[in-house]
Simulated assay, not measured.
Amino acid sequence: MSREGRYPSCCGHALCLTSFFTRISVSIRQKLSSFKRDFKAIYNMTPASWIREKRLEKAKEMLEATQLPVSEICYSLGFENISHFSRIFKEYHGQAPTVFRH
């Protein structure tokens, strides 16, 4: 089965995140810009940064708890580029995913 068949094609894209945040803001009857401003005031980071951190924390957990290949972890969390995933994982956790696991 191809990667495209297993994982949502838009996860992680700015367009997909904007759509997601738009749906949230509409459901709470707030403008998207107001939602993002309020979110940043509460969490001291943008909604997209918050989601990225949560995905990187989940990647760390998966590396510790499973033997899944790094590429499978990367794609299952919505990252579409392994080199980008590895770079931001290293920036966030201090080690590349392959080094972190060993």
Rank of each mutant, 00 (worst) to 15 (best):
K90T: 06
T98Y: 06
A96D: 07
Y43N: 10
P47M: 01
V99I: 07
E57Q: 14
V70C: 11
L17V: 00
R29F: 15
A59D: 06
H84I: 10
E57C: 12
S83M: 11
C10W: 06
R23E: 15
D38A: 11
F21V: 01
K90A: 13
L68V: 03
V70N: 09
Y7G: 00
Y43I: 03
I51C: 11
L32C: 00
T66Y: 04
I42W: 07
M45N: 07
I28H: 09
T46H: 05
E80M: 05
Q67T: 12
G5M: 10
R87Q: 08
S25T: 03
S86G: 14
R6Y: 11
K36S: 07
R87M: 11
E61V: 04
I82F: 08
R23S: 15
R29G: 10
M1W: 05
S86W: 00
Q30W: 15
R101V: 09
R52F: 03
Q30E: 10
A96Y: 03
A65V: 04
A59C: 02
Q30H: 07
K31T: 13
K90S: 14
Y75K: 03
E91P: 00
H13K: 15
K90Y: 07
S71F: 14
K90G: 05
E80A: 08
T22A: 08
Q30P: 01
Q95P: 00
E53D: 13
R3S: 14
D38L: 13
Q67A: 08
